[in-house]
Amino acid sequence: MAQTYISKVIVDLWKQEVTLEWTGPNAAAQEKGPFHCSPGEGVSGVNCDDIATSKRSGTSCTPKGEFPVNYHERRFSQFPQAEWVTRFQDDSRGIALHYYPIVPEYPDSNGCVRIASLNAAKLIYDNTKSRQSVVSVREELRPRFGIVLKRGAKSQDVRKIQRRLVEKGYRLGIDGDFGPRTEAVVKQFQKDKRLSADGIFGRQTYQVLFA
């Protein structure tokens, strides 16, 4: 009888969630998630949403694509708080899925996928197979935490904020242009959440919008 194991670990960068696909006779009974995670934030000026860029060393991006699991480590020697380490992509970058005690609602690592649940990280560690299990990293990153955006701004971060507001039920075009309509919707969101309704997107608004 074939062994039951995790065939694919799916990392959704936008939702910041890890879900599991299992194979084997008892696959349907296994825990699948989702589990909260935080990916790499990328160095300043680097577009981690670009697939080729995300795979390069020195970017602090979580690589996008599908990668076989390489091997497992109990913890990182340099960062002992990182436990139940499942390595993927390549050894030169040291990219892995692992537990970490700090997992915010925004990209925050140097490229690894931090998992908030110790049990989930151990589940992946115990039940993925080297060269057989696959890690699939998909979707776009949330905006970098700490950005301040206001009327007149035009960027991919503006488009991402618009996308999130639409997901929250607000009517808004997704065009990357922080015009009067976006400002009005940001103000309405701030009022609805009892924040200072100044129409400026900063840290406090970010934390509530992406909670």
Results as ranks from 00 to 15, higher is better:
Pro63Ser: 07
Gly24Leu: 04
Ser196Val: 14
Arg138Ile: 10
Gln81Gly: 13
Asn119Gly: 09
Lys129His: 12
Lys160Asp: 05
Lys187Gln: 10
Ser57Ala: 10
Gln188Val: 00
Lys122Gln: 14
Ala153Tyr: 08
Gly111Ala: 08
Glu183Ser: 05
Ser117Tyr: 06
Gln204Gly: 00
Gly33Tyr: 09
Arg56Glu: 12
Gly179Ile: 13
Phe201Ser: 03
Glu139Trp: 02
Asp108Thr: 14
Val185Ser: 05
Arg75Lys: 13
Cys48Glu: 00
Pro101Gln: 06
Phe210Lys: 01
Ala184Gln: 08
Ser155Met: 06
Pro39Val: 11
Ser77Phe: 03
Gly94Cys: 09
Cys48Thr: 12
Ala96Leu: 12
Lys168His: 11
Tyr125His: 15
Tyr71Gln: 04
Ser7Thr: 13
Lys122Leu: 13
Ala2Asn: 13
Leu209Glu: 04
Gln162Tyr: 05
Ala52Pro: 00
Ala184Ile: 01
Ser196Cys: 01
Gln78His: 11
Pro180Glu: 01
Lys154Ile: 15
Lys187Ile: 12
Gln188Asn: 03
Thr182Arg: 08
His72Trp: 06
Arg56Ala: 09
Arg142Tyr: 01
Val166Ala: 13
Arg131Gln: 14
Phe67Pro: 02
Tyr99Asn: 03
Lys122Thr: 04
His72Tyr: 04
Arg181Met: 07
Lys154Cys: 07
Asp108Trp: 15
Lys55Asp: 00
Pro107Phe: 05
Leu97Lys: 01
Leu97Gln: 01
Tyr5Pro: 08
Arg171Pro: 00
Tyr206Leu: 02
Gln156Phe: 14
Tyr106Asn: 05
Ala121Cys: 10
Phe201Val: 08
Leu172Lys: 05
Ser109Pro: 13
Gln81Arg: 11
Asp175Met: 01
Phe178Arg: 12
Gln3Leu: 13
Thr4Arg: 08
Val134Ile: 15
Ala28Cys: 00
Ile6Val: 05
Cys112Trp: 01
Glu31Tyr: 06
Leu172Asp: 09
Glu139Arg: 11
Ile200Val: 15
Ala82His: 03
Gln156Asn: 14
Gln30Trp: 09
Cys61Arg: 03
Gly42His: 08
Leu20Arg: 08
Val103Ile: 06
Glu17Asp: 12
Val134Cys: 10
His72Gly: 08
Phe145Trp: 08
Cys37Ser: 10
Arg75Ala: 13
Asp91Phe: 10
